[in-house]
């Protein structure tokens, strides 16, 4: 069997990251924490709504085209896409962070260009659009899709 000392050390090693996550919202990697996803959704009315981010581009004819995220981000797993978009592809920086390196910006531009051109051809502008979808809780049908925010991404 395991010794008392081992059991206590194990308990501390397991609890410390968990306590940090619960009270400070900081997740250590690696740590033994499984997905909680404790959020709830309000279904008080006959409808439910959720927000998400979507990439759009305007092509050379000024038409707005929706970009397929799975193809765009591959091989990055699709579940990471919303987190990347939240940070505007790493271009969103705080007061404490250093300004974006030009070489890194160029690298990002080439990466994005390649992926968008493969999907929709040459483009003029790139946007990250925050949408709010409202769905009927009775039959699950989409009732409304509203643009909440629209952020252009400048890579030049």
């Amino acid at each position: 069997m395991f010794s008392v000392r081992f059991t206590i050390c194990l308990l501390i090693a397991l609890l410390f990251p968990f306590v940090l996550k619960v009270f400070k919202h900081v997740e250590i990697y690696p740590s033994l924490i499984l997905p909680a996803g404790q959020n709830t959704l309000s279904i008080s009315k006959k409808q439910m709504s959720y927000q998400y981010k979507q990439i759009y581009v305007t092509d050379i004819h000024n038409r707005r085209i929706k970009i397929n995220h799975a193809d765009f981000f591959a091989p990055i797993p699709i579940q990471f896409s919303s987190f990347i978009l939240k940070r505007n592809f790493g271009l969103k920086f705080t007061k404490s962070s250093s300004p974006v390196d030009e070489a890194k910006k160029t690298e990002l531009k080439h990466w994005i260009d390649k992926r968008i051109i493969a999907q929709s051809g040459p483009y003029k502008e790139l946007f990250i659009v925050t949408l709010k979808n409202t769905i009927s809780s009775v039959d699950g049908k989409l009732m409304e899709s509203k643009i909440i925010n629209e952020e252009p991404i400048y890579l030049n």
Binding site: I28, I76, F89, G90, K104, E107
Partner: peptide
């Protein structure tokens, strides 16, 4: 993957 997408966890 471009380096600008690099955003490691705070403790990793």
């Amino acid at each position: 993957i471009p380096d600008l997408l690099y955003s490691p966890p705070k403790m990793s």
